[in-house]
């Protein structure tokens, strides 16, 4: 604190509290709506205190889904989302950690080319090349499958770069000592590099888990069977046109379920999350 200005401190707290409340308001209303019946929501204005149908609504969406729109149970969708998020997070970490090990610790022809091939993918999000990627995946017969959901998305440069930056900071003496002791590259990777990379892996895991869980356009395109829907797609499919026709209480319960895992990951792993975010972008 540089100088004491009580009214400024008060103002700072006031602005932060307003900010926190405005940011939380949509979440609060969603939660309240997920505990009401449809009639209570449609009867304008809807109550702003939680109702008594929390258990009913959540168990209905988890086991049976909504009555109109998509009828697939959300439990199944959450499993799909979880598989997708975990496969993308672990897949990305696995293929990029070995790729950056090769780029940093070996000299070989085509090394620069490999580096630039990976680097260029940093720039183009899936959204840009939707139709051709869809075509490739459908030609490979991967529609409506977990492989089709995850494999195209694990090609990304961010993780490779994070590991490359980290490996470059690992002291050379470690590799030298390993070599003198007669350890081969794979032994060095497994016993020295991997344990050192633990925090980077944790940080990356948080970011990529959220990335995988929140995918929208890709699953929207390649999943046509209800049993393959992810939670985020499920919400979209439950919304029918017209405010009154949509079963908002069930949509909101599903929205809560869709937000719960990634928000929990961010809040519980906050330290790694912040690290991962700031480091992958720099």
């Amino acid at each position: 604190m540089i100088e004491n200005r009580p009214w400024l401190n008060f103002l700072a707290h006031a602005i932060l509290v307003v900010g926190v409340l405005v940011v939380a308001f949509p979440l609060y209303v969603t939660f309240v709506a997920s505990t009401l019946t449809l009639d209570e929501i449609i009867h304008v204005p809807m109550p702003l205190l939680p109702g008594g149908h929390l258990w009913e609504n959540y168990s209905q969406v988890l086991t049976a889904g909504s009555e109109g729109g998509a009828a697939a149970p959300v439990g199944r969708m959450m499993l799909n989302s979880l598989i997708m998020a975990l496969a993308i997070a672990f897949g990305k970490i696995a293929i990029s950690i070995i790729a950056s090990f090769a780029i940093v610790y070996f000299r070989f022809p085509l090394r620069k080319l490999a580096f630039w091939m990976i680097f260029i993918t940093l720039m183009l999000p899936v959204e840009v090349r939707i139709i051709p990627t869809y075509k490739v995946v459908s030609d490979l017969g991967m529609l409506n499958s977990y492989v089709g959901l995850t494999l195209p998305l694990i090609a990304s440069a961010t993780a490779t770069f994070l590991f490359r930056q980290f490996f470059l900071t690992v002291p050379d003496e470690l590799a030298e000592a390993a070599r003198i002791d007669g350890a081969g590259p794979l032994r060095f990777f497994k016993d020295v590099l991997l344990p050192l990379s633990k925090t980077s892996i944790a940080a990356l895991f948080v970011i990529q888990f959220i990335y995988g869980w929140n995918q929208y356009l890709w699953p929207l395109l390649i999943t046509t069977e209800e049993s393959m829907y992810t939670t985020v797609i499920g919400i979209k499919r439950m919304i029918t046109s017209g405010d009154a026709l949509t079963e908002w209480h069930l949509v909101m319960a599903t929205a809560m379920l869709a937000m719960l895992p990634p928000v929990a990951v961010v809040v519980l792993m906050q330290r790694w999350f912040v690290r991962g975010l700031v480091e992958t972008e720099k």
Binding site: G19, V20, V23, A24, F25, P26, L27, V29, T30, A33, I41, I42, V44, M46, I210, W213, N214, Q215, Y216, V232, I235, K236, I239, D243, A244, W248, V251, M252, A255, A258, M259, P262, V263, V265, V266, V267, Q270, F273, V274, L277
Partner: peptide, 26 residues
């Protein structure tokens, strides 16, 4: 902590939340 959590919300879900708050009739 109270300000960073919306990062974890999917854009489509964020859309649904706000569309519900501002829904024309309800």
């Amino acid at each position: 902590t109270l300000l960073i959590w919306p990062y974890a919300v999917a854009p489509a879900v964020a859309g649904v939340l706000w569309a519900f708050l501002f829904a024309p009739s309800i």
